[in-house]
Amino acid sequence: MIEAAMIWNEPNNKSHWDPEIDPDWTRFARMAILAADAIGAANPAITRVLGGISPIDPRFMARMQDFGVLDHVDAVAVHGFPLDWNLWQIHEWPAKIDEIRAVTDLPIWVSEVGVSSFGAEEVQHWGLERTAELLKGKVERCQWYSLYDLPSAWEATTRHKEAEGSSYYRHFYMGLLRDDGTPKPALEAFARHVTDFGLVQWFHFEDHRLDDAVAWMKRLGVRSLRTGLSWADRFRPNALDWFDRQMQALEDFDVTVTFCFTPEHRGIAPHHTSAPQVPEEFAEFCAEMIERYAPTRERQQVSTRPSMAVLGSR
């Protein structure tokens, strides 16, 4: 069910990794190497991707190179939202990709790109078309964020919440579908570019939108999907039941799963952005998920082989 595994999400963004705990990213680098090696040991065929960076910063990527992280992954990823949060213009996309290519020879994925319809849905439509023009053929993979708007009753995963002003509320309007499930004008444009774009959709724990999302993605012809499995959620009651349901629902897609979010009780600080107390525990979670949802052929055969007692009773 899993084609690729992404190690964390936006590690150079303080909304996802606490820089006060790990100011030089040495803890992150060690954790990423351990996770990459654990994923590779569980299934060497899985593509291992360094979590998409935001902002796009070649200095951060060079630091990961110096720490040896890039020797343990198969691709790197970037995220860009020039019409909403980044301090550069949309037409600079090719130059931003070139900045990363100057640092590494690894394949580059744009694992999140999107445009909020907060100001106007027409802006999102234009932004999708222009992004397709700029990135087609420029990167090895490009995934649009996202299918659904974030429900207004939920919280966006940012550090300062409403104190960010309109920047915070833009998070709620990134979908091709409105919160009520009705399509925006950009949906039709996405369908025309579906061979060039994959899709990103995060599913919250026991997300009520899962089945409808699958139906929409099949209707649109989506093949490549990026989603997440939360290490923090692993400690919820019935976590594996939900993970099983989610991954079974997504089995018809080429799934990139992002492993991230520190359980509060396992962090140096009690927050999902904290570096873990024991980084090997995150690696163990990654390996567990790969063994469960992307086992090697040998593991599949072992798990489905009848016992000798059953064979003898036939």
Rank of each mutant, 00 (worst) to 15 (best):
T258A: 08
V110H: 03
A38W: 00
Q124H: 05
V123E: 01
G181E: 12
W8H: 08
A215S: 14
R266P: 06
D57H: 07
L50T: 04
L34N: 00
S313A: 05
L240P: 04
I268D: 07
V115E: 03
D57S: 10
G80F: 04
A38G: 05
Y148F: 13
S54R: 14
F261W: 10
G165V: 06
L250P: 00
P185I: 09
E122L: 10
T47H: 10
G51E: 04
A45K: 10
P237M: 10
K218N: 15
G52M: 09
G40D: 11
L150K: 04
F60W: 11
G40I: 01
T258W: 06
F253E: 01
G51V: 06
D212H: 14
L176R: 00
D252K: 06
A132Y: 08
S303A: 14
L34H: 02
W8K: 04
F282S: 01
G137V: 12
H91N: 15
Y169E: 05
R292S: 12
E99Q: 15
S54I: 11
E133L: 05
W242D: 11
P107C: 08
H125Y: 15
A287K: 04
F243I: 08
A4D: 08
K218E: 15
S307F: 00
D74T: 06
T296F: 04
V113P: 00
T26N: 14
N238R: 10
E251A: 11
D57M: 12
I90A: 13
K136Y: 10
Q277V: 14
A62W: 04
A215T: 15
S307P: 01
A75G: 08
S313K: 01
G137Y: 04
D244G: 08
P185V: 10
W8D: 04
G175M: 03
D244R: 13
E3P: 00
F282P: 04
L106K: 12
A41Q: 13
E281W: 08
S111M: 06
F67A: 09
A269D: 12
K136I: 10
A75P: 03
L83N: 09
L135V: 15
L187R: 14
I100R: 00
I290R: 01
L311D: 05
E92N: 10
R159S: 09
G51T: 04
N12Q: 07
E280M: 09
L70P: 05
E281Q: 13
L135N: 03
V113I: 15
L150C: 05
R192K: 15
S167E: 07
T157S: 10
A35G: 01
R226T: 15
S152L: 14
E129T: 07
S166K: 00
A163K: 06
V257R: 00
T26L: 11
L106Y: 02
